[in-house]
């Protein structure tokens, strides 16, 4: 059952991310990206990471994609549908895909092998120790990672100020 659900959502993930890249209309790309985020959240929930799955849906599909759609709505993007010349050449895309994919797989496999993680990885049921994943994450986040958490707020402040500066009308 778990495997079946995983394969279903994995296939939805891959197809929708291909749609993001290959659709010409950016609105369609954004919609398929939302589908991708939802199925990714489902995979997180299958992996017993409920908090991350919910954050995925709330933050990515809720906030970030609304921002994307707003910008697409505000800007007139009809004139930029022409693709690069080599994008029309299917062979170069497939070759590029194979090369990057094999490079990633090779590097990950070698590093896993060197770390001795190739075998003996059996998931522990630590998620049920605290009887909720969110509670466990909260405990780790507010004890061990307290300083990075506070620095995160600084990062968001810097981002907000940066947007104000960038969006300000220049009246010089």
């Amino acid at each position: 059952m778990e495997m079946l659900l995983f394969f279903f959502f994995a296939i939805v993930c891959v197809i929708s991310s291909l749609c993001v890249v290959f659709f010409k209309n950016p609105v369609k790309s954004a919609i398929s990206l939302i589908v991708n985020f939802f199925s990714m959240g489902a995979i997180y929930i299958i992996l017993n990471a409920e908090f991350i799955g919910l954050m995925q849906v709330l933050v990515y599909a809720g906030a970030i994609m609304v921002l994307f759609l707003f910008i697409i709505m505000l800007l007139d993007v009809k004139h930029t549908t022409k693709e690069r010349v080599y994008f029309k050449n299917n062979l170069s895309v497939v070759l590029c895909f194979c090369f990057i994919f094999l490079a990633i797989i090779f590097s990950v496999a070698t590093s896993l092998y060197n770390a001795g993680l190739m075998k003996g990885l059996n998931g522990l049921d630590w998620m049920f120790l605290d009887n909720s994943n969110t509670k466990a994450i909260g405990k780790v986040l507010f004890s061990k990672y307290l300083l990075p958490f506070e620095v995160t707020s600084l990062l968001l402040l810097v981002a907000a100020i940066g947007i104000l500066v960038l969006g300000k009308k220049k009246n010089t």
């Binding site: 291909l18 993001v20 990206l33 994008f87």
Partner: peptide, 26 residues
Amino acid sequence: AILFTIGVLGVLFKRNTIVIFMSIEL
């Protein structure tokens, strides 16, 4: 790895800046 590669392809081959950003999200 598959999703990462698709994102890299989007950044490499797309011209629309918004779609490039979506690929970075991927």
